[in-house]
Design a binder for these strands. Structure first.
Length: 234
DNA sequence: AACTTTATTCAATTTACATCA
DNA sequence: GCTGATGTAAATTGAATAAAG
């Protein structure tokens, strides 16, 4: 397919009255050897173009283009090019704004995440203290089991509780987790990790918030939230 | 339906000019 | 005042797409 033959602006005679430098710019300079005579549009021309750009939703039909070109003393092709470049500038500005807004919501989300993480740590610590209290004062009741002696023993006791919850007077929360483990198993993991002093169980639950300069956001046990690859600023 | 022509758009790039250190 | 670096707007290029004949 043959490309249409456009008028070459560089070969046009553009009178200095049609396009002129803005007042604050100092007057200069002899043109270069290739006869290119490129001048910035005047403030008045830019004002008109801008106003049409916003009022016509950034597009211009050909009749309006010819009319505008006549009004501003420009070639229709120059009008087309100006709109084209203006759309590109607008798009790039739009992307900047989108980026700023996305970053703000990310920062907000990250801050909430840290708060929840601290809350979680605090609750785990309370849970451990409660476990220790129960161990010191054994009595009758649904939690009369001795936790904390060793991991194997705890695991065995918890499995019995999970297998026959009703008989043991224990109600497990079922959060419809999509993970293979149910809520009872999560409780097992938490207690197991705490009781044998193994901090790795917590690492199974929470992965590192920041790694390799990028950010991975992954909370596995209770939801399927995965925000990965949000490393668009370095 | 398949083709050519014409017109338009966009992304990427080049060019000319203004400004500043 | 000259010069090189830099930023920006105007213009070009090449590809894609759509409408009309």
């Amino acid at each position: 397919m043959e490309r249409p033959e456009y008028i070459k602006i560089q070969n046009l005679e553009v009178a200095s009255s049609q396009t002129c430098p803005t007042p604050r710019r100092k007057k200069k300079k002899k043109k270069k050897s290739n006869n290119m005579n490129k001048r910035r549009f005047s403030d008045e021309q830019i004002r008109s173009l801008e106003s049409i750009f916003y009022s016509s939703d950034s597009k211009l039909d050909s009749r309006k283009k010819v009319q505008l070109a006549a009004e501003l003393g420009l070639q229709p092709r120059q009008i087309s090019i100006w709109f084209q470049n203006r759309r590109a500038r607008w798009k790039s500005k739009q992307m900047e704004n989108d980026f700023r807004s996305l970053r703000a919501s990310y920062d907000n989300l990250a801050s909430q995440f840290r708060t929840l993480q601290e809350e979680n740590n605090s609750l785990l610590s309370q849970l451990q203290k409660l476990g220790e209290l129960v161990q010191e004062e054994p009595g009758e009741g649904c939690y009369s089991t001795n936790f904390g002696k060793n991991a194997d023993e705890n695991q065995a006791k918890l499995e019995i509780l999970e297998d026959e919850p009703e008989q043991n007077g224990v109600t497990y929360l079922n959060n419809n987790s999509k993970t293979e483990n149910g809520g009872g198993h999560q409780a097992t993991h938490l207690l197991e990790g705490r009781s044998n002093g193994n901090s790795h169980s917590e690492e199974q639950v929470w992965c590192d918030f920041e790694s390799d300069g990028g950010v991975i956001f992954e909370y596995q046990p209770c939801s399927s939230l995965h925000l990965q690859g949000l490393s668009f600023w370095g």
